[in-house]
Simulated scan of single mutants.
Amino acid sequence: MQINPARRPPVTRPRRFERSRIMLSSALRLLSLAAIVLVTTSGCFLVPGSRLSNCHSRCCELTEKTQALESELANLDAHNRKMATELGQTEQELATLDTQLRAAEDRLANYESERSRFYRRFGRGKATLPRGIGDQLAKLAERYPSLHYDPTSGISKLDTDVLFDEAQAELAGDARQMLAEFATILRSPEAQDLRLMIAGHTDDRRISGGDTRDVYPNNWHLSAARALAVADYLRVHGIDSSRMGVAGFASHQPIAANSTPGNRQKNRRVEVFLVAPDVPVVGWTETLSTVYR
């Protein structure tokens, strides 16, 4: 019987062969996967030991730095908290100082108000001499160089080297005429209410000569004696004693450094302060009635 090739039945493979094929295919896949893993991980196994050691050291170094930075950060945080506390305390102190400043400003405003009232009453550091008296004193000073008149303050300064001989408290003859004319001005009706404070001054030189020191032991005695001599002369020439006061300051109120003969001459002086009747003067009870109640 002839079989038609077109109708030949399919050849069936044995089951044992099919199982082997599957196993082989699985083995190939496993081998391929192993190869891939081997290739992928081969870099790790190929790293030199020295490089691995360096990496380990570097890792330890970075770990230590990290710990140090964390410690520093903790310290900074503690410092920040401390600064915040100090800032709070400082703000409290500033608030206290601000309160004190406002109180001081209030006191200053009160002082300035009192000073303004004082200046309105007595004048802002200017002489309160009657009209004409200042002009007469200025003209007198022009004729007598030993007399220095300050129109701003009303102070007349007399050079003691012209008024007195060295280490003496007796008026020299050349000074008497000038003081006589000075007294004439102060006796004028415009000056009747003015008071006179006469202050004596010396330089810083020690009183020399045993006989002189017996009379004037030190510059206190000499400065007071010279001021008293001027007051006595003015009294003799018509100035009432109740209008005058006398003080001696020795060498303790210089107007120039006692470093040269010229400066020492400036410091040897007698000053006559002309004081208005409403200006308080220490020692005059009628001008400081609140003190002598």
Rank of each mutant, 00 (worst) to 15 (best):
R7D: 04
R8L: 14
P9G: 09
P9E: 06
P9W: 10
P9F: 04
P9I: 11
P9D: 05
T12I: 12
R15Q: 08
R16C: 09
R16P: 04
R16T: 01
F17H: 02
F17E: 15
E18L: 15
R19H: 05
I22C: 00
I22H: 09
M23L: 07
L24M: 14
S25P: 01
S26G: 12
L30W: 06
L30Y: 12
S32N: 08
S32C: 08
L33I: 05
L33H: 08
L33S: 05
A34G: 14
A34V: 13
A35L: 15
I36G: 01
I36Y: 01
V37R: 12
L38K: 01
V39Q: 03
V39N: 04
T40F: 09
T41C: 11
T41S: 05
T41A: 08
S42Y: 06
S42T: 01
S42D: 04
S42E: 02
G43Y: 08
G43T: 13
G43C: 06
C44H: 06
L46S: 02
L46G: 06
L46Y: 12
L46F: 13
V47S: 03
V47W: 00
V47D: 04
P48E: 04
S50K: 12
R51Y: 10
L52N: 06
S53R: 13
N54Q: 15
C55F: 15
C55V: 14
H56G: 02
S57D: 15
R58W: 04
C59N: 14
C59L: 10
C59Q: 15
C59D: 12
E61D: 11
E61A: 14
L62Y: 07
T63W: 05
E64P: 00
K65I: 13
K65L: 15
K65Y: 10
T66C: 03
Q67I: 07
S71P: 00
E72Y: 10
A74F: 07
A74W: 00
A74G: 01
L76F: 02
L76N: 00
D77H: 11
D77A: 11
D77T: 12
A78Q: 02
A78P: 00
H79T: 03
H79R: 08
H79L: 10
H79E: 13
R81H: 14
K82N: 03
A84V: 08
E86P: 00
L87P: 04
T90R: 10
E91Q: 14
E91Y: 07
E91N: 06
E91K: 14
Q92P: 02
L94E: 04
L94T: 10
L94M: 11
A95K: 09
A95R: 04
L97P: 01
T99Q: 08
T99N: 09
L101S: 08
L101P: 00
L101V: 14
R102K: 15
R102A: 11
R102I: 05
A103I: 11
A103E: 12
A104V: 07
D106Y: 06
R107S: 03
R107I: 10
R107L: 13
R107G: 07
N110C: 02
N110Q: 13
Y111I: 12
Y111S: 07
E112Q: 10
E112Y: 02
E112N: 07
S113K: 01
R115V: 03
R117Q: 13
R117Y: 03
R117A: 05
R117V: 02
F118L: 08
Y119N: 15
R121D: 03
F122I: 07
F122K: 01
F122L: 14
G123E: 12
G123A: 02
R124Q: 03
R124V: 07
R124Y: 08
G125Q: 05
